[in-house]
Computed example of a mutant assay.
Amino acid sequence: MRAAISAIAEKGAAGVRMSDIAARAGMSTGHILYHFGKKDRLLLEVLVWSEADLGSRYQQAADQAASPAEKLALFVRFYLPRHQGDERYALWTQVLAQHHDDEGRHLLTELSDVWEERLEAVLLEGRASGRFADVDTAEFTIRAVAMLNGLSGDIMFGRPRWLHASADAFALAALERELRPPARP
């Protein structure tokens, strides 16, 4: 998996060949094909592995956070791509562009659902502690993820506005505005 991520980072998900990955892994292309069958399946499995790794790193950071507000900031930081060409997002883009069978669609849905569940947990904790407004959790999550996905596309595209401004700060400010509890009289 690390060999695949490395090859994808260098050549891009669309340009990487099974032989590139095999060479980095010190295996034959036939060995890779035996385990994954085809490039599309390998990319999907690499995405699953990458998301598990990212999710683990997010959870470790969130477990150390002192407040729901810090967890929300971490969520945004871990969700958005770090830069134009971010390997993890390039991989998402490549995998989403493929035609998937039911199993593949199920895996992609599960990966997306995990991020939504993480955000919902932060919202519920913030609401329970009185730090966040009482928003409709499901509706807020859909809006928040849609906004973050749009920003992700802008970052990956290399939209100039994000060269001098922080997409993380922009997204966090938008989410915090909606989550600000009403002023107490």
Rank of each mutant, 00 (worst) to 15 (best):
A4L: 07
I5C: 11
S6M: 11
A7Q: 03
I8Y: 04
E10C: 03
G12R: 00
A14C: 12
G15H: 01
G15A: 00
S19W: 10
D20T: 00
R24P: 11
A25R: 03
A25F: 03
G26V: 01
T29I: 08
I32L: 03
L33W: 14
L33R: 09
D40W: 05
R41F: 14
L42G: 05
L43T: 03
E45R: 04
L47D: 05
L47I: 00
L47K: 05
V48W: 14
W49D: 11
W49Y: 14
S50P: 12
G55Y: 05
G55F: 00
G55C: 00
R57I: 07
L72C: 08
L72M: 13
A73L: 09
V76Y: 08
L80A: 02
H83F: 12
Q84F: 04
G85W: 00
G85Q: 01
E87P: 14
E87T: 13
L91T: 09
L91C: 07
L91P: 10
Q98H: 09
Q98K: 07
E103S: 14
G104P: 15
H106I: 10
T109Q: 14
S129A: 07
F132R: 04
D136C: 03
D136N: 13
T137G: 02
T137M: 05
E139H: 15
F140Y: 10
T141M: 00
A144Y: 13
L151V: 02
M156S: 01
M156D: 00
F157G: 01
R159M: 12
W162N: 02
A169R: 10
A173K: 10
A174N: 11
E178G: 11
R184C: 13
R184F: 13
